[in-house]
Design a protein around this nucleic acid. Structure first.
Ligand code: FES
Ligand code: FES
Lengths: 164, 164
DNA sequence: TCAAACTCGGACATGATGAATCCGAGTTAA
DNA sequence: TTAACTCGGATTCATCATGTCCGAGTTTGA
């Protein structure tokens, strides 16, 4: 979402400083986004990360699947094929009834996440704070000198960070 | 689902033997179902577990919430209140935009699970195998002597069990 | 041309959550 | 009265997510 407001590549360390989280750990997840082709990484002295697509075309589901993995959250262990009343393997080609139910729910979950885009989220936060928060963030990203009216604060993150 | 076919209390050990899983671990989760008031436990020499409600009134969501816990799967760590551009706490009374999106997806997931009942699942498996599987299970529960045509097998579970 | 500095990338410890287990309290049937 | 059998919570162990580190590669500037 922050990359939406940026026009130049943003290094992972800068994003970590902005969020007050561990830089190395944020880098790890940005790598996942890079593998999923959601962001493009440019190396070199003034490199960083850039969105590959316009934010309207990136859904929350894309982000979740990039980080969490595209595989469904429920896995069937086929206990129906075990024990004294075990079903024969040739009758178990299709997924079991419980799995079907869980997969249907999983589909509904993913469909809901697919409906909201990163751009939608940006508009949502702007409405929350009744202020152009993304614009202020863009300013902060350009030069780390804070604009007037915003309190400055040590860039060193507080100890005991709880990452996302 | 097996308890649907039973008319008398079924001990946890018997269910574990039927499924070929660890008896002690299955007992742990049955305790969770008991706490959620989905099953009622009767103690004593011929005790066991019985359903408290007819299977049409027990939804898959009830079971999932009983075992997994009713709290939503996503928790916001409020990173918006951290770093140099931290939002003031008085502006963070409502959940953030990302949390709202995740909660909406969670609701869709739960709604899908709420639509299917234990009775539905039973009918579904009967259709899968084109046979009255629940009736056979009821027979097996009554006396551990297998009916004709079903192969008998050691009640000792195989080592290296993978529980559910 | 060259070197230096800064970037990402994947491989490596650590902690927390869930999986699996155990024994004791309580109840029923004989 | 007793004896056996049931559930219940507390305990231990394995696995995965969290958090961290250093090396390969690229751009910028002299
Ligand atoms: S056999 Fe347990 S979910 Fe399919
Ligand atoms: S601040 Fe990260 S999800 Fe709410």
């Amino acid at each position: 979402m922050v990359l939406t407001a940026a026009t130049e590549p943003v290094p992972a360390a800068r994003l970590a400083e902005l969020h007050g989280v561990s830089a190395t750990y944020l880098a790890k997840h940005l790598q996942a986004l890079s593998r999923a082709e959601l962001v493009h990484s440019v190396q070199g002295k003034s490199g960083g990360y850039v969105l590959t697509r316009p934010p309207e075309e990136i859904t929350a589901l894309d982000v979740v699947e990039a980080v969490e993995g595209p595989q469904p959250t429920f896995v069937c262990t086929e206990i129906r094929q075990r024990g004294p009343m075990a079903a024969p393997p040739e009758a178990c080609t299709a997924p079991c009834a419980i799995t079907r139910t869980m997969i249907a729910a999983d589909r509904a979950w993913r469909a809901a996440l697919r409906e909201v885009s990163i751009a939608d989220l940006g508009r949502s936060v702007a409405q929350d704070y009744e202020s152009d928060a993304l614009g202020e963030i863009a300013n902060w990203l350009a030069g780390s000198v804070a604009p007037a009216g915003v309190r400055t604060q040590s860039p060193i993150a507080a100890p005991g960070n709880r990452g996302h």
